[in-house]
Amino acid sequence: MPSFVITEKCDGCKALDKTACQHICPNDLMVLDKVQMKAYNREPEMCWECYNCVKICPTQAVEVRGYADFVPLGAAVTPMRGTDSIMWTVKFRNGTLKRFKFPIRTTEEGKAVPDGGFGPGDANLKNQMLFTEPASAGMPTIPSLKK
């Protein structure tokens, strides 16, 4: 059913200022049932299995079960996303387990500086250069048509 929420694990993000899964879903699928204080996917057939709700949930309450109309049962793909890397556990239908770890970023979260440290560059509103160019392009200038 694409993403689904394990009832027991979801605490409705009580401690946060916003419901994490609802905040992040690019397709506006996750909603909080305010009576039960449990989240659910309101339109599973519009889910891309992008895993953003899974990765963001503070209690690991969201999982994904492959689309029932073409995926055999029994597999599980589970991420653990940290600040600089992500760990994946892939469980096969036949029980085989694979684990992978990949870096996700090389800088501290939140700190991306718009000019990337290149400085504003030589651009003015009349020339063809953009902010940070030509330094960010690594060239003395930006090429144009041969005259």
Partner: peptide, 16 residues
């Protein structure tokens, strides 16, 4: 797969 189409990882795992 895991970076951009996680569904494919699920499908391969589910199909062994």
């Amino acid at each position: 797969f895991l970076d951009m189409t996680i569904s494919q990882a699920i499908l391969w795992a589910a199909s062994n």
